[in-house]
């Protein structure tokens, strides 16, 4: 087993790019690569591969659907709140996940999953555009998939899949009505 740069890249992508619909495929790709690397290192293949499959299956239609909606780019205040808050959350996650209690190789993966979830939720809270909010939530669901694929129980993976299905359903029904101006934003 050897240390991999993928968790670091995923943390950087989560802090800087959460809440941007164009960045969602890159973040999802990093999540999939991290899951596959962990599967190859750890020997347990089924759960990480299943989680990777659902990350791809959830992200592809969402990226296609969000690409068809009108989006407003984040204003400087949203960017500062997102990146600054993301950096603080990253520092908190590094401090909160102690050395020794978690395996030395699994620790960066756990921190990366937590940062992806927290930064995604933060982006969903600070972005005004519904497309950006949805992209943030999708990034957070991908982080939960990573957590479930790495170390979670079957209940977490089942819950993450259910959340992804719900997000797809609401995004396709609800965001279309809001973003196409049928209802007040």
């Amino acid at each position: 087993m050897m240390a991999s740069p993928l968790p670091g890249l995923l943390i950087a992508a989560s802090v800087v790019l959460s809440g941007l619909r164009g960045a969602l495929p890159w973040q999802a790709g990093l999540v999939v690569l991290t899951l596959l690397a962990a599967a190859l290192d750890g020997g347990a293949l089924v759960r990480p591969c299943l989680a990777s499959l659902f990350v791809v299956a959830g992200t592809v239609p969402l990226v296609w659907g969000l690409g068809r909606l009108e989006d407003r780019p984040p204003v400087p205040g949203e960017r500062i709140s997102g990146v600054g808050g993301g950096l603080m959350l990253t520092i908190l996650a590094v401090l909160a996940v102690p050395r020794g209690l978690v395996d030395a190789v699994a620790r960066p993966d756990l921190i990366a999953a937590l940062v992806a979830i927290l930064c995604g939720v933060l982006a969903a809270a600070v972005r005004r555009s519904v497309v950006g909010q949805c992209a943030g939530l999708a990034a957070a669901v991908n982080g939960l998939m990573l957590l479930a694929g790495l170390a979670g129980r079957d209940a977490v993976l089942a819950g993450a899949i259910a959340l992804q299905v719900a997000l797809l359903l609401v995004a396709f029904v609800c965001l279309r009505r809001i973003a196409w101006g049928r209802e007040a934003t």
Binding site: L137, A140, V156, V170, E183
Partner: peptide, 28 residues
Amino acid sequence: VTRGAARAGWDLFRLSLSGILLAVPGAA
């Protein structure tokens, strides 16, 4: 999915999903 309540529904959904996304890893 209620007609005319898309915005309220999205806000409630965003809130619920954010809460679950924090609670489930916390419990794990």
